[in-house]
Design a binder for these strands. Structure first.
Lengths: 214, 214
DNA sequence: CAGAAAACTACATCGAATGCAAAATTACAA
DNA sequence: TTGTAATTTTGCATTCGATGTAGTTTTCTG
């Protein structure tokens, strides 16, 4: 059957792993842009062509686990208690995200330098922002679905964009000022708290006056 | 002298213009990814190599005027009245940005399809987000400098990220739901108003309790 | 007009990415 | 086990974006 127990499946997983390991090691030792796909493939003992049947691009090796975090966040919203406040929900989403980072950071020390790559290498920064943006789109729609009476789609987008945009920007600004990863995380959390406090204190203007946006 | 009145400077401006015109026309008629740099150069009557002495990449033709908008926004903050509220300042920044779009849209109908490219072509979307993010960094630092007593750097980052992130996400979400450009703009403005209202209503928590973030 | 400075051009090259068809490998059934 | 179908891997060619270089043309300046 098409389960995960065939030799074929096992081998594919193994090469995939080998490619990721080889790529990360090379990226960290000689830099992302200085590493060619050929070198990665050679280090993983496959042909260059095969690399591209596992990853659509060189960047994808870095972001191969991006979907996990997105689904985790979406799950938090999908499992919301009926009538739960959007601000509480968003708070849990971000807290869950930060917790995952914390855990990963403890589990493996190699996450930090990889994270550093995604904030310094231009092409990775761009791809990372693109992925994050698309996740925000999903979150906004999910949040609106979860709290249709509290937030219009426009408001849900504003809320998600505000909380995540603020956190990301605060973390990045602090990083570029030479802050440690811990300080970055603290700034991100503080920005989140700031945005959430503002969101909670905000009067539900569009509920009481004027037609609700679609 | 090295002024703008030499034949050399004039010619350079002319080729630059020709390259932009040729590129946009090709992008709109046959698609961004389907257009090669060679074609652009040929249409502008220069060699392919010369294209890259005017623009560092194919994407840069699309974003050649990005710096303008950024400087406009930074000017608004730099010329703030002393003691002006951050929320008012941010409101003016975004309003100025929207006004510029409005004007451009009236002046030339070709801005809309180009804007559409930057929201649908993946590589352009990524580059656009990267540029916007870097502008947000500058804005956050400028806002903190303009209102050092009202907002810490973390809070300024949160505020900027919130307002702009919310507006951008709201506009994009509406676009991907098939909204017209006008509706997109409206959603963006609404999201801005939402975030600003929240910001204004927010208690200055970090001013009254706990040490201010750096 | 002559020499310096700048711009343009024609290569040559590299790396990422894709298409394709021929091996090599794995799965499965007789 | 063996033959065959399905799948993966591979090598090769090719396209395109981007950069380096060296030589030619154009513009500037005195």
């Amino acid at each position: 059957m098409g389960e995960g127990s065939g030799l074929r499946e096992r081998k594919k997983l193994r090469t995939r792993h080998a490619l990721i390991e080889a790529a990360l090691e090379l990226f960290l030792s000689k830099g992302y842009e200085q590493t060619t796909v050929s070198e990665i493939a050679a280090a993983a003992d496959v042909s260059t062509r095969t690399f591209f049947s596992y990853f659509a691009s060189k960047e994808e090796v870095i972001f191969h686990n991006a979907r996990e975090g997105a689904d985790r966040a979406l799950t938090v919203i999908a499992e919301a208690a009926p009538g739960e406040r959007a601000a509480d929900l968003l708070g849990r989403v971000v807290a869950t995200g930060f917790a995952a980072i914390d855990m990963d950071e403890r589990v493996s020390r190699e996450i930090a330098p990889i994270n550093h790559l995604t904030m310094t290498v231009p092409s990775l920064r761009a791809r990372g922002l693109l992925l994050l943006f698309d996740v925000q789109r999903e979150l906004a729609e999910a949040l609106h679905r979860a709290c249709p009476d509290e937030l219009s789609l426009t408001e849900a987008s504003a809320a998600v964009g505000a909380v995540i945009g603020g956190a990301k920007l605060a973390a990045f600004v602090h990083m570029s000022h030479g802050a440690s990863p811990e300080e970055m995380m603290r700034a991100g959390r503080a920005a989140t708290a700031f945005a959430l406090a503002a969101l909670r204190a905000s009067p539900p203007a569009s509920r009481t006056s004027g037609p609700p946006a679609p």
